[in-house]
Design a binder for these strands. Structure first.
Length: 378
DNA sequence: ACCTCCCGCCAGACA
DNA sequence: TGTCTGGCGGGAGGT
């Protein structure tokens, strides 16, 4: 504890040889990263710059950025460049993830190819169907099928894993999921005897990476199963309930997750989409092709309700339609955000960071108040 | 001894 | 061809 006098986003003082992993944890780095940009008038985030300011390798920034992008805090703009959306992007991103999960739960799980890379696949309009021909999802290393390699790589990407991880909570009715189960759902059958042990261990590492970042955002917390003491993750985000119960996934929930995630996660189908990725008519268009601009534009449109309200970034993505029947749902969402806003209290030891957090908490509350006002007025 | 996860290698994508 | 991106797993710190 005494060693934490290092200024945070300058590199920690390597002063003494008291090396602590915690000082270099992804979670802490994420907090520092966020504090660099949140609440400031920052439009674009340069990864180089961030790495320099945080005193870390660029590689670490990629880990964080991929997770943050999945929960709507960042959006990729160009190579080495991201748009900063901030915490205001979380509610909508979660809403969209939830809708995606629910929709794909019926129609088979489809992972979006993220970022500009997808353009390559789309370019020539070749609709080459992705191999879902029942191979067990294990990529042959020297396969000549380049796409397959890409797909395989993408479906294992930290960003996609994060989305799936979050969806798992959003569509199931449990608050807490065991690490083992999460790994099973997201990464395939880690206890499959055909898989070498080191392989499953490697996969679980990614879960830790994601969990560390998400918990630094206070979207989840790491916990343990009461009886077995097995490591688990508890969802604190939108869905947080006052009386959260710690349970492991019941078979039925597991089944519904599996339905949404595809029968075999290791063999998730990558659905090729046209440039505008529209999951359903009623779903807001999500455009990854050219980065944030379009994403924001479509997002902005949703904020305009039929009643003429214009929401801030915290507004519900579903508000644009079905006003009548959504009214009730909305007020529930608002409550959720309230919970989320009030629950988002990262614990920073550094006073500067605390102050900074207070700052964006304030803006969070401002947005919340705005929504609440509009909702209750209606 | 097992859990957690940082670190950096290196392959693939991109400009 | 150089740079960017990020999967991956070794291995060390933490419990």
């Amino acid at each position: 504890m005494s060693s934490s006098s290092s200024t945070f986003f300058e590199c920690e003082a390597p002063s003494h040889h008291s090396y602590s992993r915690k000082q270099k944890s992804l979670g802490l780095l994420c907090s520092n990263f966020v504090s660099l940009y949140e609440g400031k008038e920052v439009e674009s985030v340069c990864l180089d710059d961030a790495a320099r300011r945080l005193g870390v390798e660029r590689r670490r920034i990629y880990d964080i950025v991929n997770v943050l992008e999945s929960v709507g805090i960042l959006a990729r703009k160009a190579k080495n460049k991201y748009s900063w959306i901030g915490f205001s992007g979380i509610p909508m991103a979660l809403e969209m993830l939830k809708e995606e999960a629910l929709i794909s739960g019926c129609s088979g799980y489809a992972i979006e190819a993220r970022s500009s890379k997808i353009e390559d696949l789309e370019d020539d309009g070749d609709d080459k169907s992705l191999d879902q021909n029942g191979d067990n999802g294990v990529e042959k290393p020297n396969s000549s099928k380049g796409k397959s390699v890409n797909d395989n790589r993408r479906e294992k990407s930290l960003g996609v894993l994060t989305e799936n991880f979050v969806k798992m909570f959003l569509i199931s009715d449990v608050d807490t999921v065991l690490l083992d189960e999460a790994a099973k759902l997201l990464l395939g059958d880690v206890h499959n005897p055909s898989q070498p042990k080191s392989n499953s261990a490697a996969k679980v590492r990614r879960l830790y990476d994601i969990a560390n970042v998400l918990s630094s955002l206070n979207l989840i917390e790491k916990t343990h199963h009461i009886e077995t003491r097995k490591p688990a993750f508890r969802w604190l985000g939108l869905k947080r309930k006052p009386s959260a119960v710690t349970v492991s996934l019941q078979p039925s929930s597991m089944a519904s997750c599996k339905r949404a995630f595809g029968a075999d996660i290791t063999n998730v189908e990558l659905t090729k989409r046209s440039k505008s990725i529209s999951l359903a008519e009623k779903k807001p268009v999500r455009v990854y092709s050219d980065g944030m601009k379009e994403y924001n534009v479509s997002a902005q449109k949703q904020f305009q309700t039929s009643k003429g309200y214009v929401f801030g970034p915290f507004s519900p993505s579903a508000m644009s339609k079905r006003d009548e029947q959504n009214e009730e749902k909305q007020s529930k969402n608002v409550q959720n955000w309230e919970t989320m806003a009030s629950s988002f209290r990262p614990t920073y030891q550094n006073p500067v960071l605390s102050e900074m957090f207070a700052h964006y908490l304030e803006s969070w509350n401002r947005w919340y108040a705005e929504i609440a006002q509009v909702t209750y007025r209606g």
